[in-house]
Design a binder for these strands. Structure first.
Lengths: 113, 113
DNA sequence: TGCAAATTTCGATGATTATCGAAATAGAGG
DNA sequence: CCTCTATTTCGATAATCATCGAAATTTGCA
């Protein structure tokens, strides 16, 4: 896995709207979800959703399939597995990555606060 | 794991420079790496490196410790484990995430090309 | 105290991003 | 061909980001 590709995919997921979007798709399973339903669920403008969807598709994390008039979106599980595999490989090169729960890592300091 | 935190951490890793940076730290293991050495390795301005490092630290993915004059940076493994855990949880809610190698997910379409 | 090395902060600039509404496009069906 | 619905593209705007060099800061040491 090329580090550039990994970075692009991480960047694609590194936005609250897109991560919610992706999560909804993952939870929808193989059935996927139509664009319109995603829009209702996220409550954003259709054009904004289309923009984010496009970014996810470009990185290969999401795919689309036409069903008559509606477009069904699906999470691309193998892509995510690949990405997670990359992270785990990097993480476990020579460090014991067995901690299942992080200690002080669950909160993010916010510089703007 | 809050989805906002996950998004922030993914965003932090979703930049080629920072991902290289983080990878170097992960590979350095518990010994960590001084800022100066990271700068040599990445070949970027010290101020740029400091900026990226700051972002990684804010998300809890990297920590620093002073050793006399130099600052030692270390990857925060538990944070990464937490993040990977989040991704895996989302991914495996009801989908069989057993594919170890992705099929068509290894290449990223580049809209700017 | 004063110097040297390491790192950050400041200030600026160009590039990218997120968001929206309006208009355009695509597919189905009468 | 026309219309309806679903979705994307366009154009614009405000916000955030990456990057650099110069200046300031911190720390140790003589």
């Amino acid at each position: 896995m090329d580090i550039e590709i990994a970075a692009k995919q991480l960047e694609a997921l590194g936005n609250a709207t897109r991560l919610q979007l992706y999560r909804a798709l993952v939870r929808a399973g193989d059935a996927g979800l139509p664009v319109g339903r995603l829009q209702q669920r996220l409550g954003i403008a259709a054009s904004t959703l289309s923009h984010h969807l496009h970014r996810l598709i470009l990185t290969g994390l999401v795919s689309q399939e036409r069903q008559t008039t509606t477009l069904i979106c699906r999470a691309n599980y193998p892509a995510m597995n690949n990405l997670v595999g990359f992270l785990v490989d990097e993480c476990c090169v020579d460090a014991g990555c067995s901690a299942s729960e992080a200690d002080g890592a669950a909160s993010v300091a916010d510089s703007a606060t």
